[in-house]
Simulated scan of single mutants.
Amino acid sequence: MDTRWKPSVTVAAVIERGGKYLLVEEHTPEGLRLNNPAGHLDPGETPAQGCAREALEETAHAFLPTALVGVYLSRFQRPATGEDITYVRFAFCGELGEFDTTRALDQGIVRTLWLTPEEVRASAARHRSPLVLRCIEDHLAGQRFPLGLIHTDAAVTAGQD
Rank of each mutant, 00 (worst) to 15 (best):
Ser8Thr: 11
Ser8Ala: 14
Val9Asn: 09
Val9Met: 15
Val11Glu: 01
Val11Leu: 05
Val11Asn: 01
Ala12Tyr: 08
Val14Phe: 03
Val14Asp: 05
Val14Cys: 06
Gly19Ala: 07
Leu22Lys: 03
Glu26Tyr: 00
His27Met: 14
Thr28Asp: 06
Pro29Lys: 14
Pro29Thr: 10
Pro29Ile: 07
Glu30Tyr: 02
Arg33Thr: 04
Asn36Ile: 03
Pro37Thr: 02
Pro37Asn: 11
Gly39His: 05
Leu41Val: 14
Asp42Arg: 09
Asp42His: 10
Gln49Met: 09
Gly50Ala: 09
Cys51Asp: 02
Ala55Thr: 10
Glu57Arg: 09
Glu58Gly: 03
Ala60Gly: 06
His61Gly: 05
Ala62His: 14
Leu64Ala: 10
Pro65Ala: 07
Pro65Trp: 14
Leu68Ala: 05
Val69Glu: 02
Val69Ile: 14
Ser74His: 13
Arg75Ile: 07
Phe76Val: 06
Phe76Thr: 11
Gln77Pro: 00
Gln77Glu: 09
Asp84Ser: 10
Cys93Pro: 00
Cys93Arg: 02
Gly94Pro: 04
Glu95Trp: 02
Leu96Met: 12
Glu98Leu: 02
Phe99Ala: 03
Phe99Lys: 08
Asp100Gly: 05
Arg103Lys: 15
Leu105Val: 05
Val110Thr: 12
Arg111Glu: 08
Arg111Val: 00
Thr112Leu: 00
Leu115His: 12
Thr116Asn: 05
Pro117Ser: 04
Pro117Gln: 13
Pro117Tyr: 04
Pro117Phe: 08
Pro117Asp: 02
Glu119Met: 07
Glu119Tyr: 10
Arg121Leu: 13
Arg121Ile: 08
Ser123Ala: 15
Ser123Thr: 04
Ala125Asn: 04
His127Trp: 09
His127Met: 03
Arg128Ile: 00
Arg128Trp: 01
Leu131Arg: 12
Val132Leu: 11
Val132Gly: 01
Arg134Glu: 13
Arg134Gln: 13
Asp138His: 10
Leu140Val: 04
Ala141Phe: 12
Gln143Asn: 08
Arg144Glu: 08
Phe145His: 15
Pro146Leu: 07
Gly148Val: 09
Gly148Phe: 09
Leu149Pro: 01
Ile150Tyr: 05
Thr152Arg: 05
Asp153Tyr: 04
Ala154Thr: 13
Ala158Val: 07
